[in-house]
Simulated scan of single mutants.
Amino acid sequence: MCDNAKWPLIPFEPWKESCAALHLQTQIVGKYRLAHTPWVNHSWHATLYVNADGLTTGLIPDGPGITVQFDLQRQRLVASCPTGKSDGFPLEPMSIAEFDSRFKKVIATLGGSPEYHGFPNELPDATPFAEDTAARPWDADAVSRFHRALVRIDAVFNEFRTGFLGKVSPVHLFWGSFDLAVTRFSGRPAPLHPGGIPNLPDAVTREAYSHEVSSAGFWPGGGGIDEPCFYSYAYPTPDRLAEQLVGPATARFDKKLGEFVLPYEAVRSAPDPRETLLEFLASTFDAAARLAGWDKGLACAIGQKGVPRLVG
């Protein structure tokens, strides 16, 4: 995992249109999961997860039980159920309306109910899926490299996740903002979030930020920063957070976004990408937790393979 040759190049500009298509496609699949899964705190029931093939929903309690997977190495959307049936279609150039139609047919074929909210979230000037008939490209090579980057990032995020004894989220992909994220909680209630995120009900945002958080994640690009980038922020934002020194030296506080950012390329090209990313995750969390007065006992050493954590 430390070999930077295993962290692929994923410049945003060459595949941004394909990235936008994949983003909307994950919204369709994610909304299907959302529609059929009981609510879990902070919308954790709606997310996607990185696996060896691409992105998966996990088992959705609809019909016989259905799992949907973006196989980003073989360029297919695949759905399967415990009866042994599966169905899918190639991931290729098509409109969002065409993807939506094909996906609904797949779910119906497996005995599921392809009913979900048909409008994108967290995107300004959004078009309903069924009406988005513009042709969309599909850069299969870029999509494959993006997935391989997610595999490396997911491993480091999961390692970082082990260094906390309090409530911590899974490592998961939020399809609304299209970011892979992991979030730590202080355990204290947070001020009411003001909401105002485009095409997202304020009630959802306020439930997501009901308690103090320190959150880190990864964007492939877009949404105010046009390069693949890691981020770290706290809600509520502690005073003087922007003034804190964090590592590595290539990290910075973006005043427009209100959070620390670290270019993916700075990690990929580092002598040890894993250590570089862990430094960013740990130092930005430490800065936020210290300023906000989090319980110091919540942090702990990163977990070791096969070694139970010592207690007492």
Rank of each mutant, 00 (worst) to 15 (best):
178 F>M: 15
298 L>S: 07
74 R>Q: 13
157 F>P: 09
4 N>M: 02
41 N>Y: 14
174 F>W: 08
147 H>W: 04
99 F>M: 03
94 M>S: 10
46 A>Q: 15
28 I>W: 06
112 G>A: 08
266 A>T: 08
265 E>W: 03
278 L>S: 00
245 L>P: 01
92 E>C: 15
33 R>W: 00
12 F>E: 07
286 D>N: 11
168 V>F: 08
289 A>C: 07
135 A>E: 15
62 D>K: 02
303 G>H: 04
202 D>K: 06
96 I>V: 13
10 I>N: 01
312 G>T: 09
256 K>E: 13
167 K>T: 15
193 H>L: 04
241 L>N: 01
195 G>P: 05
127 T>H: 02
173 L>T: 05
267 V>C: 10
290 R>W: 12
87 D>W: 12
158 N>R: 12
113 S>R: 11
54 G>P: 00
306 G>W: 02
51 N>Y: 10
197 I>N: 03
266 A>R: 02
288 A>D: 06
235 Y>C: 04
40 V>A: 14
46 A>H: 10
231 Y>I: 05
100 D>V: 06
172 H>L: 13
194 P>G: 08
199 N>G: 04
51 N>S: 10
195 G>Y: 02
111 G>D: 08
14 P>L: 01
152 R>S: 08
168 V>Q: 08
60 I>F: 02
2 C>D: 15
149 A>N: 05
58 G>E: 13
138 W>I: 08
150 L>K: 03
25 Q>G: 09
9 L>C: 07
253 F>I: 02
215 S>R: 09
171 V>R: 00
50 V>Y: 06
250 T>K: 14
27 Q>L: 02
39 W>C: 13
233 Y>R: 13
51 N>Q: 09
252 R>P: 01
195 G>I: 05
40 V>E: 12
245 L>R: 11
159 E>V: 10
245 L>K: 15
153 I>W: 03
190 A>I: 02
16 K>N: 12
186 S>T: 09
45 H>M: 06
54 G>I: 03
78 V>Y: 03
199 N>S: 06
255 K>T: 13
89 F>M: 05
228 P>C: 03
174 F>V: 06
302 I>R: 15
301 A>M: 07
268 R>S: 05
278 L>Y: 00
185 F>Y: 15
118 G>M: 12
229 C>Q: 05
38 P>E: 11
81 C>M: 10
229 C>W: 12
310 L>T: 14
30 G>E: 01
27 Q>F: 02
160 F>S: 14
81 C>P: 00
286 D>I: 07
125 D>T: 12
168 V>W: 06
232 S>R: 09
11 P>W: 06
137 P>E: 14
68 V>A: 15
98 E>F: 12
67 T>R: 15
248 P>L: 00
86 S>G: 07
64 P>K: 14
221 G>H: 01
241 L>V: 01
185 F>M: 12
98 E>D: 12
88 G>C: 07
111 G>N: 07
65 G>N: 10
72 L>F: 03
227 E>Q: 09
228 P>D: 06
15 W>S: 09
299 A>G: 03
307 V>H: 09
72 L>N: 03
32 Y>K: 00
281 L>P: 02
183 T>F: 01
11 P>T: 06
279 E>C: 13
101 S>W: 12
210 S>M: 04
164 F>Q: 01
180 L>F: 11
